[in-house]
Design a protein around this nucleic acid. Structure first.
Lengths: 250, 250
DNA sequence: TCAAAAGTGTTACTGCTACACCCATGT
DNA sequence: ACATGGGTGTAGCAGTAACACTTTTGA
């Protein structure tokens, strides 16, 4: 059997689904949209849609992200600093159980997007209702309960959250949750929200400022968090943290 | 726009491609098959094939693995020890560039398999020719040269090798390259081959035997490597290594 | 003056590297 | 006897955790 016989192959629909994460009010939140028609009508789901005929997977994910949130995707090799409302986007995993969509065979290439807290939650999106919800809202649900996400989106969300939690350990990705300029304290609160832990501010400060290429000072300061003025930083060029940021045990 | 309108979607072919890695003669090797027809006729490619109509992605990958190598897939939550010729299998990434196959739109869900060195390289496989080749053979090739892999398989192989290299740092996956019973020295030679480095045998021994759940002694010994008899071990239940095995800098 | 958050110094401990050294076998 | 690989002991160092302490603002 040829592995690439162009005749006689089973037809699939291919979609992209998005796990869009942000940190709001000290909580890790995910973007969810309400389904307008069956199946799972009225239930919450992850944003997503069909991949177009001439479109790369990453391009489809980026297009859906813009449609839902107005967020542009970070230039991966950009020396240009972030404009302030752009997001990190990466492929997460692909879900293809034959029964995951009751109507037809759909393979979904899930993507993970990390975004700063947006002033207007879903500006520029479609007319359908959308919301930011704490990830616990959906992760706490077991299986197919009415509060759970549609399809296998609960599993996809769980995988995305786990990826984000582990990736900020050894990369500088946590800065994707921050605005273009941020303080060390704001970055620490991102780690605390994503991991659901409390970190020592003193040791955290030493760690992130002592890692070459992680943060570059802009020269400015701010008191928007109260207390003594804090230096403002931008994300530096380094993407890998070595040694990694350690997540507390329990 | 509904994200799941069952009418009017562009049809895709969905395949699985396999990066099958093993360690032979102190080298990290990948399984390659020779293409019998155009495009890329006569060139080497990764094994793979269409996902069937009623088949999960992981099942398709496992089926292809059996067809090509005779390897069974490890039970993920098995308390049963390995039978000796079973492999680790995990999803790697999905490749969907519109032009990756010149004939039609094909989305390939690549999987990574890690296998012990097989006595009979491709027993039970298809009739077409297959071989184990050092990964450098294909990774060294630039772009579309005649020695390079077909399609985007060079990129897929590179991604799979990188995943294996990083994953043995913080997991016990390196044991998937070993037979069911192995010595500490044999495990060390796996790390050395995958990373292309030399490790200190004394420190390595302390590290792996001192990590709870990584290795469990079988009680037996062997002298198949020469020298003093070495204890035999099985892979333990632990999957995550904490602290991780450190890959030397340069 | 006080609360709040930023930032520095110091000590104790963990885990790694490097290397000296001994052990048990085959030839 | 000696080569080969297996395995233990130990000193020095890097990086972290825990926490006392100072700094600079707003109320």
């Amino acid at each position: 059997m040829s592995p690439y016989d162009p005749s006689a192959f089973p037809p699939f629909a291919v979609t992209v689904d998005l796990v869009v994460l942000t940190v709001r009010r000290h909580e890790l939140c995910a973007l969810a949209v309400r389904r307008g028609e069956p199946p799972f009508q009225g239930r919450w789901a992850l944003p997503g849609g069909f991949v177009r005929d001439d479109e790369d997977l990453a391009a489809a994910a980026a297009r859906e992200l813009v449609e839902e949130t107005g967020l542009q995707v970070h230039d991966t090799d950009a020396s240009v600093p972030s404009a302030g409302n752009d997001a990190h986007l990466e492929q997460l995993a692909t879900y293809g159980d034959p029964k995951r969509d009751p109507r037809m065979r759909v393979v979904s290439v899930a993507h993970l997007a990390l975004a700063p807290d947006l002033p207007a939650p879903t500006a520029g999106g479609d007319a359908h209702s959308a919301r930011w919800a704490a990830v616990e809202t959906f992760l706490g649900q077991t299986g197919d309960g009415a509060g759970a996400l549609a399809f296998d989106h609960g599993q996809i969300l769980a995988d995305g959250v786990e990826r984000a939690r582990s990736k900020i350990e050894y990369s500088s990705l946590a800065t994707a949750f921050c605005p273009s300029e941020f303080t060390v304290g704001e970055l620490r609160r991102v780690y605390e929200a994503v991991w659901g832990v409390v970190l020592d501010p003193r040791n955290f400060h030493r760690k992130v400022t002592g890692t070459p290429g992680f943060l570059v000072p802009t020269g400015g300061t701010t008191t928007r968090q109260g207390g003594r003025p804090a230096q403002l930083f931008r994300a530096g060029g380094a993407t890998l943290l070595n040694p990694p940021m350690l997540r507390p045990e329990v």
